[in-house]
């Protein structure tokens, strides 16, 4: 082989300007710009929107969706989906309340039991998907109904209420001036963002999503990874369930109904391809924040809830179109 054929120019280190430009036209960059524009626009409509108090309050409201969106990003990157997260959240809440009130568990133990049952629910999803080969969509659609039914059966449509004061610290309290659960979300985003971007686990997930067979043929333990992420999804839905109960002070079997769609919308808005293979935690979290701020900002500027969903749907489509356009231009250049 002659040198002429292999002799590629050695890539020089990119300048700061180039790096910045690269960041700006990335999926996340584009979305971030859309978010900034939306925030600035909403801020001109009402002076109630861009205040520290309001923004922190929105952070409180979006924590559950944000926490569940992290494993959902993992799962969608592998080309899967988990529709049962809302039901797992409900199941966790009910188990927490039921073990505490009916079985007389200490509240601490009830919390752990609740989260564990969520984790187990996710594990069962994973087990059937990996071992029996049920497609994730079918499996989690089935458990969406099953776990909800389980929650309703256990609760007998009764709510568990009257938790002690300390229980509300997580959902309603503050730490260093910031809603307690928001800390948890921030830490989770950083940790699991790095896990996805930098570790072997993250790399394996992208490989599985792009070409599961190829990943298997490269000696990656595909099944183990899939089992892990569905279990992880159950765990995070469980944690979200605990936070949710702590925030609204009661358990109901219909908790988290429909949250899976909010989560999936945010993840997809954040640039994760529903076909798998691409996506990132920063993108997802921008998606979560964007949807939450739009909801809140539009209400504050006098748009009613039914009109707000229309606007959010439009922004979702718009953002995806803009991103597709920019990404295809980037591919060419």
């Amino acid at each position: 082989m002659t040198d002429k054929k292999t002799g590629q120019p050695i890539p020089r280190n990119p300048t700061l300007g180039e790096k910045l430009r690269h960041l700006l036209i990335s999926q996340e960059g584009v979305l971030f710009v859309i978010m900034l524009v939306s925030v600035l626009f909403l801020a001109t409509r009402t002076d109630k929107f861009l205040t520290v108090d309001n923004l922190l309050q929105q952070g409180r409201f979006m924590t559950e969706v944000g926490l569940i969106a992290i494993p959902m990003t993992y799962i969608i990157i592998t080309g899967g989906i988990d529709l049962s997260v809302g039901s797992i959240l409900g199941l966790t809440a009910i188990v927490l309340g039921w073990t505490w009130q009916e079985l007389g568990f200490p509240l601490e133990l009830a919390i752990v039991t609740g989260i564990l049952s969520g984790t187990l629910a996710g594990f069962v999803n994973g087990l059937f998907i990996v071992r029996v080969g049920v497609p994730p969509l079918i499996m989690t659609l089935a458990t969406l109904a099953l776990y909800r039914g389980l929650a309703e059966g256990i609760s007998e449509a009764r709510s568990a209420r009257g938790y002690p004061e300390w229980f509300f610290q997580l959902g309603q309290g503050e730490f260093l001036g910031i809603p307690t659960q928001l800390w948890l979300l921030i830490i989770a985003v950083i940790v699991f963002g790095i896990v996805l971007a930098r570790t072997r686990l993250g790399r394996a997930l992208y490989a599985i999503g792009n070409n599961e067979l190829g990943a298997r043929f490269s000696g990656l333990t595909v099944n183990r990874h899939l089992l892990f992420i569905y279990t992880f999804s159950g765990f995070m839905a469980g944690v979200a369930g605990y936070i949710f109960v702590s925030r609204v002070s009661t358990t109901r079997s219909d908790m988290g109904t429909g949250i899976e769609l909010d989560v999936i919308a945010a993840v997809v808005l954040g640039g994760t391809s529903i076909f798998g293979g691409t996506g990132s935690i920063p993108g997802t979290i921008i998606g979560v924040v964007l949807i939450q701020l739009l909801k809140n900002g539009l209400t504050l500027s006098g748009v009613t809830s039914d009109a707000t969903i229309v606007v959010i749907g439009s922004v979702l489509i718009f953002a995806i179109l803009v991103n597709n356009f920019i990404q295809s231009r980037r591919e060419e250049s």
Binding site: R198, A204, Y206, N210, G214
Partner: peptide, 27 residues
């Protein structure tokens, strides 16, 4: 089966030896 075509040469060449190019699971 052989390649993950959507991924880079770098990511493909290290696919079977991730433990060699990583430290404490960080690639």
């Amino acid at each position: 089966q052989g390649l993950i075509r959507e991924m880079t040469i770098r990511e493909n060449t290290s696919m079977a030896v991730l433990e060699l190019v990583s430290k404490n699971t960080f690639i």
